[in-house]
Design a protein around this nucleic acid. Structure first.
Lengths: 228, 228
DNA sequence: TTAATTATATGATTTTTATCACATTTTTAA
DNA sequence: TTAAAAATGTGATAAAAATCATATAATTAA
């Protein structure tokens, strides 16, 4: 079992503010898990017993609408923490997390995290800052969902994916999403997403083969995202 | 100048976790303001120098989309705190706040709040909980915006307004919003909002005269919000 | 390997929503 | 008080997006 105090991943999130003793204690109570592609980390309505620190892999965090359609709220990846919110608000999770690829995650029990949150101001301040940032970006998503067309949202989503996941050796965006997942991020019907992707391909703004998507004309895609 | 330690409003927000000394100190540096209907409390891009505690009145918090349309993110009212987020993230506000009616607000300087946040764990924990809650509701708004029809969102908005503001002696929802404001909450064109309101009136699900709107058939409105 | 299942793709059509135009009412300010 | 401005309301039309149908490609499991 690897040790938290030696784990490089914590540098990417609020856990970097923990002291050596806090990390040692965390190491002793944390557990590691392998989650296979397609498997859930937790489900809607589940009461989380701790937080997850993503060591490797990507998962989609989504929520079912009353209409019975699934909306992906965020993609959580290596270095991110997952589940702090429902831990802090002490309510069942309103979200579901499913692995998009094989994952390696650490589970840290609730009591441990809560103790650190209350005792270590620089840790709690960091979590606070993180939440303020997430909230700001949630506001932006609300505005986009409410005011932008599906075409704009698709363009924006592709740009966001490239900047979050980077590109591989073929200049393709470094994450594999099904057309349905893409549709569920932008909040549209799968057919609409497919159609708009085909349009962008026809206009040589993007290229794709299967789930490997690459942005060819970044400038044009940015224009589309802004509504031109 | 009224004193924070005697102010009843703080019971409604995280400030209730402050100690008597903290409140006395706050009292000595806070200032009170009257904001007239239609006036801004702060604007998009402005760097806030403190937080606002709403003593009386309602304001709309909104953001301009790249399309040049305004989206109302929330309505902030008596007892609420405003501006903590951009203070915590130490970035210019991404939002604009405009009074919907005459308001009475207190301004608490940044240094004072930040000191309390760092020194008083029960205060910072309360702010943290509050943000977790706001984030959860932001997720719900994202899902609604992405997946529900304008009609559903209008029904939902009316229900939310009634439960947040209550009703007056005529059973009308206790807040006055223009049709444009309503449209900007649900994220649609003003004409569409007006048309759908007229439909609901024709079907005797709501009644209104000017900005006084009342829900007549709650059950039916809830059904519409859910997509029937 | 092959059949079954699932994902992707595209056409035709319907539904939803935005836009434009204009009339009427209400509010505001001179 | 009254003219101007702003808000509300409604019809006609256009644009955007969903839905339904069906074909093909890719993936999965027996």
């Amino acid at each position: 079992m690897s040790k938290c105090e030696q784990c490089i991943i914590r540098q990417f999130n609020s856990l970097k503010h923990l002291s050596r003793e806090e990390l040692v204690r965390m190491s002793n109570c944390k557990t590691s898990k392998i989650i296979k592609k397609g498997e859930p980390i937790f489900d809607e309505g589940e009461r989380l017993k701790g937080v997850f620190c993503i060591k490797d892999g990507v998962c989609k965090v989504s929520k079912m609408s009353e209409n019975g359609r699934n909306q992906i709220i965020s993609l959580v990846t290596k270095g991110d923490l997952l589940g702090e919110r429902s831990l802090i608000s002490d309510e069942p999770s309103n979200l579901k997390a499913i692995a998009l690829e094989d994952m390696e995650i650490c589970f840290i029990p609730k009591e441990e995290i809560m103790k650190d949150l209350e005792k270590n101001p620089s840790f709690s301040m960091s979590v606070l800052k993180d939440m303020a940032k997430t909230l700001k970006s949630a506001d932006n998503v609300i505005v986009d969902m409410a005011q932008k067309t599906v075409k704009q949202r698709l363009a924006e989503t592709l740009l966001n994916l490239e900047s979050k996941f980077g590109t591989n050796e073929n200049d393709a965006i470094n994450v594999h999403l099904s057309r349905e997942d893409i549709a569920n991020i932008i909040g549209t019907a799968t057919e609409s997403a497919i159609r708009l992707l085909s349009d962008l391909k026809k206009k040589k703004i993007i290229a794709f083969k299967g789930k490997e998507i690459s942005i060819i004309n970044l400038n044009e895609l940015e224009k589309i995202a802004q509504g031109f």
